[in-house]
Nucleic acid binder design. Structure first.
Length: 643
DNA sequence: CGGACAAGCTGA
DNA sequence: CAGCTTGTCCGG
C-alpha cells in the first residue's frame, strides 16, 4: 500500500527540506499569545536573557546561520539550560525540539534544543553540540513542558521525556495520505452531537457507558489530524485500528511517534499521548475524561485532561472531553452536551438496588436476589474491593476487634490464618488479645473468603480475579468470578455485575469517593451493556438513597455532580480550590520558604506532610514556584487524587 | 544528577 | 600526611 503511513519510506521530511531550501534558520515565530497566562516563572531561566531570544527569533537574518542554541539537558535534578555552538555541518538538522547530545561538566548527556539563534552570554566559552540525535517534540510542546512544569511544580525534563520518542528518530515518514477520513460511515445522532461539540472551543460531551465512541473519532478526524486520548490502551488501539481500516491515516502512540511527528495522521493513545508530537492538531478529544488513570502518579502529577485543554487553548482548536460521568473539573471547564434523556437512559444498564438493611443478618452479605443470580446460568462478576481473606475481625467470644499488639491498627487475616498488621507488618497467631479466644468473626470478608462463601451458595465454580492473581480471563468460562475492581478491567463482557459491598466505595475516606464509586459503576455498566440488552447491575448497599446509587438507577450522573460540588464548596476542596501535598525529608525547609499570598493557606504538618490550599491552580503554581527549592528529597503533589 | 574538589577523619 | 570518606558546588 503506497500511502500507508505504517509502512513508511523514511527520509528527511518536507519540513527539513523546506528549511534547507528557504532559510538556514529554522526558527519558530514567537506566538503573541504565548504569554497571556502567567508565564512559567523563574526556576528554568538560569542565564536566560529572553529579550535577546525574542528579537533574534522574530527577525531572522538569512545570512546569519544558527550558531548558538539553548539546550535543556536531560539530567534529573538540574533544571537549567545551557548554550552550545552548532557545528556548520549540523545546521540543517537543528531546530527547536531537536534531541541532541552535549558535553556538560565532562559528561555526555542528552538534551533538547529549546531555542535557536540565541545571543550567547558574554565571557563564556561555548562547547559545540556533540551530536544531533534526531527529531524531538515540536516547538509547541517545548513550551507546553515549561507550562506543565510550572502548573504541577515539576521538572521540565521529565515532561519533555514524555513528549519524546523512545528511540532516536532520524527521519520522518513521508506521508502522502491525508489524515482525514476518505469515507464516512453513517452513524446518526452521535455524529451530529460530536460535530456540535467540535464546533465549540471547549465542551463536555456526556455519553452513556454503552456508547460506541467511534463516531466521535470519525467526526473529529474529519477536521484534519486530531489527537485522541483515552485511559485504556486496549480500547484506544481498537478505535485507532477501526479508523485505519476505514482508510484513515492513524498513528498509535507511543509506537508511531514519528508518524505523529510528521503531522498528517490521527493520533490515538493513552495518557502520555497528551504529549504526542502532532505539530498542529485540528482538535483534541479526551475519552473517559473522568478516569483517574489519566493523571500521572509520579511527579509531576500532570493530568491528560488539563494538558489537552491547555494545548487546545494555545493552538486555538476545539477540545472535547467525553465521559458518561464528567468530572467536576470538566464541568467547570465548559458547557455540557448530552443526548436526550431517552437516549442517555438507554445507554445505562438496568440497576437492581438491594437495601441490605432490610435483610436478615445472615442474608446481608449475599442477598437472596444475588443468590438467585448466582444459581442461574448468567455470567456473573462479583466485585469486592478487598483482597485477602478478611480485612476486619472480631473475637467470637468477647467481640474485641482484632488489633495489632504493636501499633493498634486493625489486623487482617493472611491466607495461612495468621493475623498481619498492614501498617507495621507484625504477624501473630489468631488469638484474641483481650480474652485469649481463638475463634474470630469476619466483619468484612475479603475476596478469598468471599470466593469460598459464594461457591457454597452458587453451587458452581467461583474463581478469584484480582490485580495479582494469574487467571486468564478468557478461560473463566461459565464460572462465577469474584474480584477486586481489577476484575472490571480484565473481563470483557458479563451478564451481571454485583457490587457485594458498595458502601465501602461510597463511604471511603477519600474526598473523591463518590466520583470514584460512580466511575466503578460505569466500568461495570460497560461489561453488561445498555438497557436494551439483558445485562444488569446489582448493588448491595445500606445507602440506597445515596446520590451515586440514584445516579446509576436513573442514568443521571448529574445527581452526583450536583451533590458533590456542594460538598466541595463546603469543604473547600477541588475544583473549588486547588491543593498540593508537600512531603519528603526536605518538606519542612521548603514549607518554611513559602510565602503564601492572601487566600493561600498552608496546613500541617500531619504525618510529615503539608497541605497547600489556593483559590485556583494558577495561584497555587505561582506560590509553589516562588519558594526556593531546598536540596534533598521533596515531593510536591499538585492536584492530589487522595489526601 | 554526578564529577571535582575541599575539608575532615583515621591510623601509623 | 597518605588515603579515604563526606559534603558542597556547579555545569555553557
Amino acid at each position: 500500500m503506497p500511502g500507508d503511513p505504517t509502512q513508511p519510506s523514511f527520509d528527511f521530511g518536507p519540513e527539513l527540506a523546506g528549511d534547507r531550501r528557504r532559510d538556514p534558520v529554522p526558527t519558530v515565530p514567537p506566538r503573541p499569545g504565548a504569554g497571556r497566562r502567567r508565564s512559567p516563572t523563574g526556576r528554568a531561566s538560569g542565564t536566560l536573557r529572553t529579550p535577546a531570544v525574542t528579537s533574534e527569533v522574530s527577525s531572522p537574518v538569512p545570512d546569519r546561520p544558527v550558531r548558538v542554541v539553548r539546550v535543556r539537558p536531560d539530567v534529573a535534578g538540574l533544571d537549567k539550560c545551557f548554550d552550545y555552538l552548532v557545528p556548520s555541518e549540523l545546521h540543517g538538522d537543528v531546530r527547536v525540539g531537536s534531541m541532541v547530545r552535549i558535553s556538560l561538566h565532562n559528561r555526555r548527556v542528552g538534551g533538547w534544543v529549546v531555542a535557536v539563534g540565541v545571543e550567547p552570554p558574554e565571557g563564556v566559552a561555548l562547547h559545540p553540540l556533540a551530536k544531533v540525535t534526531g527529531w524531538g517534540p515540536p516547538p509547541e510542546l517545548i513550551e507546553m513542558a515549561d507550562w506543565a512544569a510550572w502548573r504541577w511544580s515539576g521538572r521540565v525534563a521529565s515532561l519533555l521525556r514524555t513528549a519524546s520518542p523512545e528511540t532516536a528518530v532520524r527521519g520522518l515518514p513521508r506521508s502522502s495520505a491525508r489524515a482525514s477520513m476518505p469515507t464516512t460511515v453513517a452513524v446518526g445522532d452521535l455524529t451530529a452531537m460530536a460535530e456540535e461539540a467540535l464546533a465549540l472551543p471547549m465542551s463536555v460531551l456526556r455519553l452513556p457507558p454503552a456508547s460506541d465512541l467511534y463516531p466521535v473519532l470519525v467526526a473529529a478526524a474529519a477536521l484534519g489530524p486530531v489527537l485522541v486520548i483515552g485511559p485504556s490502551a486496549r480500547s484506544m488501539r481498537h478505535l485507532g485500528l477501526r479508523l485505519r481500516r476505514a482508510g484513515g491515516s492513524v498513528a498509535l502512540m507511543p509506537r508511531d511517534w514519528a508518524v505523529a511527528r510528521g503531522g498528517a495522521a490521527t493520533v490515538v493513545g493513552t495518557r502520555a499521548a497528551a504529549w504526542a508530537p502532532i505539530p498542529r492538531p485540528a482538535a483534541i478529544v479526551v475519552l473517559d475524561e473522568h478516569d483517574e488513570s489519566l493523571q500521572q502518579e509520579q511527579n509531576p502529577t500532570w493530568h491528560a485532561r488539563d494538558v489537552a485543554l491547555e494545548r487546545a487553548r494555545r493552538a486555538g482548536v476545539p477540545c472535547v472531553l467525553v465521559s458518561p460521568t464528567p468530572s467536576l473539573e470538566a464541568l467547570a471547564a465548559g458547557p455540557v452536551l448530552a443526548p436526550s434523556r431517552r437516549v442517555e437512559r438507554a445507554g445505562w444498564p438496568r440497576v437492581d438496588v438491594i437495601d441490605t438493611r432490610e435483610l436478615a443478618a445472615s442474608e446481608a452479605r449475599y442477598s437472596p436476589r444475588l443468590v438467585d443470580v448466582l444459581r442461574s446460568d448468567a455470567r456473573v462478576l462479583c466485585v469486592l474491593n478487598r483482597k485477602g481473606r478478611s480485612r476486619l475481625l472480631s473475637c467470637a467470644a468477647c467481640g474485641e476487634l482484632a488489633a495489632c499488639e504493636r501499633c493498634q491498627a486493625a489486623v487482617s487475616q493472611d491466607d495461612d490464618g495468621s493475623l498481619r498488621c498492614a501498617r507495621c507488618g507484625a504477624v501473630r497467631p489468631q488469638v484474641c488479645l483481650r480474652c485469649g479466644g481463638t475463634r474470630m468473626k469476619n466483619l468484612r470478608a475479603g475476596v478469598s473468603r468471599a470466593r469460598e462463601e459464594l461457591e457454597a451458595l452458587a453451587k458452581r465454580p467461583v474463581v478469584e480475579l484480582t490485580a495479582d492473581t494469574e487467571v486468564d480471563p478468557s478461560g473463566v468460562g461459565s464460572a462465577v468470578v469474584v474480584g477486586t475492581e481489577a476484575a472490571l478491567h480484565q473481563l470483557d463482557a458479563v451478564d451481571v455485575v454485583a457490587f457485594l459491598d458498595l458502601d465501602q466505595e461510597l463511604l471511603a475516606p477519600r474526598y473523591r469517593a463518590a466520583e470514584e464509586a460512580l466511575s466503578l459503576i460505569v466500568r461495570a455498566a460497560r461489561l453488561v451493556g445498555g438497557r436494551d440488552g439483558h445485562g444488569r447491575l446489582l448493588l448491595q448497599t445500606r445507602l440506597p438513597d445515596h446520590e451515586v446509587v440514584r445516579a446509576a438507577v436513573l442514568a443521571d450522573p448529574d445527581r452526583v455532580a450536583t451533590a458533590e460540588l456542594a460538598r466541595r464548596r463546603l469543604l473547600a476542596y477541588p475544583p473549588v480550590t486547588a491543593l498540593a501535598v508537600v512531603s519528603g525529608p526536605s518538606a519542612p525547609l521548603f514549607v518554611a520558604g513559602l510565602v503564601p499570598p492572601s487566600g493561600v493557606e498552608v496546613l500541617g504538618p500531619s504525618d510529615g506532610s503539608w497541605l497547600v490550599r489556593a483559590p485556583d491552580s494558577s495561584t497555587l503554581a505561582d506560590t509553589l514556584a516562588a519558594a526556593p527549592r531546598p536540596a534533598g528529597r521533596l515531593r510536591i503533589e499538585v492536584d492530589p487524587q487522595r489526601l
